[in-house]
Simulated scan of single mutants.
Amino acid sequence: MALHLIKLCVGCDSITDLEEWIEENRALHRRLGRDFEQTHTTRMVPKRVEELLNGGSLFWVIKGQVAARQTLLDVRPFTDGDGIGRCRLVLEPTVVPVEPRPYRPFQGWRYLAIKDAPRDIGAYGGDLAAMPEDMRRQLAELGLL
């Protein structure tokens, strides 16, 4: 059974910010002649890697709400130059908006069970995916989504 991670997207104010950061990073790699692979480095290494790589995603909390997810492709522990153990989460660079849901601040990452994960916006059908992100956020805050 798959398992997800959830993490704060520090420095991003919107899904668009996250997508632009990914594209800037991709362009930098292209200019430097490097292969692009989107990774996110974190301090703690998940112990349940097999479950995470069985269809799991990294859900991003942006401005106090779960807002988007990216599919987890790999989990790579490593030791940095200071001898500190860290972990690279390798992510599919496609950002998938999810139903906005309030989430309190926390440090690091947390496991997120499938039953607790918000659905992709596209799962609703209709025009919800075409709605501006700010409007979805406000409707969610009012309990209307």
Rank of each mutant, 00 (worst) to 15 (best):
2 A>N: 06
2 A>M: 12
2 A>P: 06
3 L>E: 01
5 L>W: 00
6 I>H: 00
8 L>Q: 12
9 C>I: 08
9 C>N: 06
11 G>K: 03
11 G>P: 00
12 C>N: 05
12 C>D: 10
14 S>D: 04
15 I>P: 00
16 T>R: 13
18 L>M: 03
18 L>D: 01
22 I>L: 04
28 L>Y: 11
35 D>G: 13
36 F>G: 09
36 F>P: 01
39 T>E: 04
39 T>Q: 12
40 H>R: 10
41 T>Q: 09
42 T>D: 06
46 P>S: 11
48 R>T: 09
50 E>D: 12
51 E>W: 07
53 L>Y: 01
54 N>T: 06
56 G>C: 02
58 L>K: 00
59 F>W: 02
61 V>R: 01
62 I>M: 00
63 K>G: 07
63 K>R: 13
74 D>N: 07
77 P>F: 04
83 G>H: 03
83 G>D: 09
83 G>M: 05
84 I>L: 12
84 I>W: 09
84 I>Q: 13
84 I>C: 10
90 V>G: 02
90 V>N: 02
91 L>C: 03
97 P>I: 04
98 V>P: 00
102 P>I: 10
103 Y>S: 13
107 Q>N: 12
109 W>R: 04
112 L>F: 09
113 A>I: 08
115 K>G: 11
116 D>H: 04
118 P>A: 09
120 D>K: 11
125 G>L: 09
125 G>I: 14
127 D>V: 13
127 D>S: 11
130 A>L: 14
131 M>T: 14
132 P>W: 10
132 P>I: 12
134 D>I: 08
134 D>M: 09
136 R>L: 15
139 L>G: 01
139 L>K: 07
143 G>Q: 01
145 L>Q: 01
